[in-house]
Design a binder for these strands. Sequence first.
DNA 1: GTCTATATTGCGATAGAC
DNA 2: GTCTATCGCAATATAGAC
Lengths: 194, 194
Amino acid sequence: MDKKDFRSTLIVTATRLFAERGLNGVSIRELSTAAGVSISMISYYFDGKEGLYSSVLAEQFSCFEYMLSIKERTAGPLDKIEEYIRWSIRRNREHPFLLRYYTSELTNPTRYFSVIVQPALETALQILIGIIKEGIDKKLFREELSPEDTALAMAGMVNYYFLSTLATQGFVNHSPERDEELIRHYMDIFTKGL
Amino acid sequence: MDKKDFRSTLIVTATRLFAERGLNGVSIRELSTAAGVSISMISYYFDGKEGLYSSVLAEQFSCFEYMLSIKERTAGPLDKIEEYIRWSIRRNREHPFLLRYYTSELTNPTRYFSVIVQPALETALQILIGIIKEGIDKKLFREELSPEDTALAMAGMVNYYFLSTLATQGFVNHSPERDEELIRHYMDIFTKGL
DNA sequence: GTCTATATTGCGATAGAC
DNA sequence: GTCTATCGCAATATAGAC
């Protein structure tokens, strides 16, 4: 946002607006006005509304590359799982609009899903599956576990905490101060069960 | 769909189209053509596009009332949790578009969120929280568990399995034949941990 | 690079015939 | 109840001035 160039300003504004009301819920008129820029700048920089959307999408999902660094660590499987949970929570905190693109693309995919979203999600989940397999191989986790189902269960647990916010804020405290407690709780459930 | 009256036909068609492309992604022109009905029927029966959407939403979320019957059961907490998981999976199988409205309303709420969606989700989650509290009171579950966080973890686990389908179908088998195995696996993770 | 003005298309809603 | 025809408006995109 520091950069004063219109290209970045448009991306910042579009990120918020597309997240709040979806690709079809925002007009480039409204968007350019909100960004304090002429409407024609969208075609000039992004070749139209869809091009702007794809740029927003690419930027939002670039943070998934971080999973590669977790994979490369020398830590054991359990530590890596904690790192995964920690990163997932941090990711949702630092990119408050990401989950909207994430769920929107999974349920109403645009033409950019297969190019941007699917690869990012698959990479992260495959690494998580690999970590669980490693734990099973090393006899740290029970061999009856399906690595795939377990990985999806973990990913779902963390993401749903954020996804459900709007429906649960009346009876669940979602403040960031509680994040460490949440991480311990998730690790606790997964290591010991109920 | 058996009923030939236009009102039901419009709801059936709208349920699919709104799910696939969102409220703003579908025009009433296209919708009425797909339903084989005149465009003016939408205003006639539903007082416009938004009214049609709200009718679709109300119908989709009516199935959440089923949770009340789980609450009333005489079974123990663990059996009730299995019933919850079983119902969640069945719900997603029987209402293939529900999760789209569910996530869309949670991330991009319309004016109908607080009237239709929020109450349905809160009721179901509060009942699940109650079941977990009951298990803690009866010393069946560990007392360190946060009922709220645990309930969200369970809900997230099941829903994410369906939510992630589009990104994971290449390496996770999502066929209904595997549902019973999935239920056993989820119960297994939650009762024993990794 | 950035703007205004405009061309063109498609939108939601409805009047009025049947 | 159902249709066609149309109104008025808002959408995206772009031509052309600066």
